[in-house]
């Protein structure tokens, strides 16, 4: 994570209402410069609505939202030039060739170039960066799903954005394409200090990519922290298994190391087949989502807020 702690995304008390139903309740989170933040949650949790409000494509009902210090509802073209957006499904520009489209879309950014950030990204360099050098002269409709997605990222970063929004970026990817994609996003965050907000329902992806994870369930934030913090603080219970005198034992504890230490002090060599299972993020996630869905959400929220303070 970058040392610079500027707040790039600032969301406070965000609410969204369609007719009589609230799809977002009091959503509050922040992302700092150069940070990768994952908005994790099951389908219908309000992830896409949140990201669309931040992109300036959707009007919110209430709350305060700032992206790069600007309210997206009133963001001008200069603000727009500092953002990159990758949506869930894009099938546009099928007749264009890869290099041709990147050069064209890049030309809109020339007047937003600064000394610190020269815009746009050089087309050939960009094509190489996203791994499409061999396909640069292909028609876009001839690209495979993974190539198409990398092109979408290339288009999103052609203006060297300071903030990059990725909505469900790897849906339908094979494992190799997914890994390459993750490397690309990490590189953008680490080398170019791009702040990244991505939505995903894939826990594994959030854990691999994100510096911090915000879990959204039924329009509420039920957890916010690093992957390690989340698994430690919420579920908090590791499982210890062992056998003694041919008998099986299991014990759940937050302090597994200390527990095992005491176990050996007490029984020494009698302990066999020792296993310690760390509380996994998956357990945490499932527990949180299940609790939120069974209507105990407000309780979870307050417990969690206490825990993170």
């Amino acid at each position: 994570m970058a040392a610079d702690r500027r707040v790039v995304l600032d969301v406070e008390g965000l609410r969204m209402r369609y007719g009589a139903t609230d799809v977002l309740h009091d959503v509050t989170f922040q992302a700092h410069h150069g940070e990768v933040l994952a908005l994790l949650g099951p389908n219908g949790a309000g992830k896409s609505t949140t990201i669309e409000i931040l992109e300036g494509f959707r009007m919110r009902s209430a709350g305060r939202v700032e992206v790069l210090g600007t309210d997206p509802a009133h963001g001008g073209e200069e603000w727009r030039a500092r953002l990159g957006v990758v949506l869930q499904s894009w099938r546009d520009h099928g007749k264009w060739r890869v290099r041709e489209l990147l050069a064209h879309l890049g030309s809109y950014y020339t007047c937003y170039s600064t000394d610190a950030i020269p815009r746009p990204w050089d087309t050939d360099d960009l094509v190489r960066t996203v791994g499409l050098a061999e396909h640069a002269d292909k028609k876009i409709r001839m690209l495979s799903g993974g190539q198409r997605r990398r092109l979408d990222v290339a288009i999103a970063i052609v203006g060297r954005p300071e903030v990059l929004f990725l909505d469900e970026p790897t849906t339908g990817f094979d494992p190799e394409a997914r890994r390459e994609f993750h490397d690309l996003v990490r590189r953008l965050a680490d080398e170019l200090e791009t702040t990244v907000l991505l939505t995903t329902h894939d826990l594994d992806e959030a854990e691999k990519l994100a510096d911090r994870i915000v879990i959204l369930s039924q329009g509420r934030i039920v957890a916010d922290g690093t992957a390690v913090e989340l698994s430690r603080r919420i579920a908090g219970e590791d499982h210890v298994r062992w056998t003694r005198d041919g008998q099986r034992f299991t014990h759940s504890t937050a302090e597994s190391t200390e527990f095992v230490h005491n176990l050996f002090k007490q029984h020494g060599a009698e302990i066999r087949e020792l296993e310690v299972h760390r509380a996994s993020l998956e357990d945490t996630y499932m527990a949180l989502v299940r609790r939120a869905e069974s209507g105990q959400d407000s309780a979870t929220e307050s417990t969690w807020k206490e825990a993170t303070r």
């Binding site: 992109e55 494509f57 073209e77 200069e78 727009r80 030039a81 953002l83 957006v85 949506l87 499904s89 894009w90 099938r91 546009d92 520009h93 099928g94 879309l105 809109y108 950014y109 937003y112 288009i155 999103a156 203006g159």
Partner: peptide, 20 residues
């Protein structure tokens, strides 16, 4: 057609893209 396939949204995501 281009509203359906996302071309228009792409223009919207580009600075002054709608004009272009």
């Amino acid at each position: 057609v281009e509203r359906e396939d996302g071309t228009l949204l792409r223009a919207k995501a580009t600075p002054n893209g709608m004009l272009g």
